[in-house]
Design a protein around this nucleic acid. Structure first.
Lengths: 108, 108
DNA sequence: ACATATACCTTGACACACGAAGTATAATAT
DNA sequence: ATATTATACTTCGTGTGTCAAGGTATATGT
């Protein structure tokens, strides 16, 4: 079953940052990873993905650099900054708080 | 701490329907209840609240009627329909699924 | 030659939440 | 008496995040 995007909205930044906490990565790979991890239940649309990268870079949560592939299509890698790491940890707490609040309100 | 509204987005309908599952109610009271239940961590803005009522009524999830108060300010009461009850139960399941998916993606 | 997979980018539209403002009555404080 | 606060609903315009639809480019398989 597919996940309604309005339930995910606002979580895309954290999801991407969570990936970058592990290692530098690039858009296409991150999206594949999301799709795999959720058994196809969820995947970001490309337009959304690159919009979020742009936003996170403007916020200085991530920086980007071109991979030196001489073979395949060029990849733009993203790296999380110290600010981004801090933001990720805080956002995760906020997310948990929000889930608790909503769960209480809808009586789960 | 206040809850970021993007974490709530998409949950407002369920939150309101959850209240109406208990009993018919009106906007002001529902919002007070939300504020009380969350110890002030969250409250819907009035514009949002009435927008959601409008949307739910258009979707035939709820119906409304004027209260017969002869004393205080007039109240518009809302009642959940059978369709609304069904929608509520389904949405709750979807919400839980979405939370599990996100939790997995951000490694909680 | 053609299709498919990889990989990135941009533009415009849409839906939801919200800020700001307004209307109206009842209760309470000064 | 009159000013303020609490109750209660409404409408209009704006902003943000997501997405549909389109595009570019290279490598590999058939």
């Amino acid at each position: 079953m597919l996940i309604a995007s309005d339930f995910i909205r606002g979580s895309t930044e954290i999801i991407i940052l969570a990936h970058l906490m592990k290692e530098d990565s690039y858009g296409y790979k991150i999206n594949k990873s999301i799709s795999d991890k959720t058994n196809g239940q969820y995947e970001l649309k490309e337009a959304t993905l690159y919009t979020v990268f742009k936003r996170l870079e403007d916020m200085e949560m991530i920086v980007s650099y071109w991979g030196d592939e001489n073979k395949a299509a060029r990849r733009r890698y993203y790296k999380i900054t110290d600010l981004g790491k801090k933001f990720y940890e805080e956002s995760k707490k906020e997310w948990e708080d929000a889930q608790n609040v909503i769960a209480q309100l809808i009586e789960i």
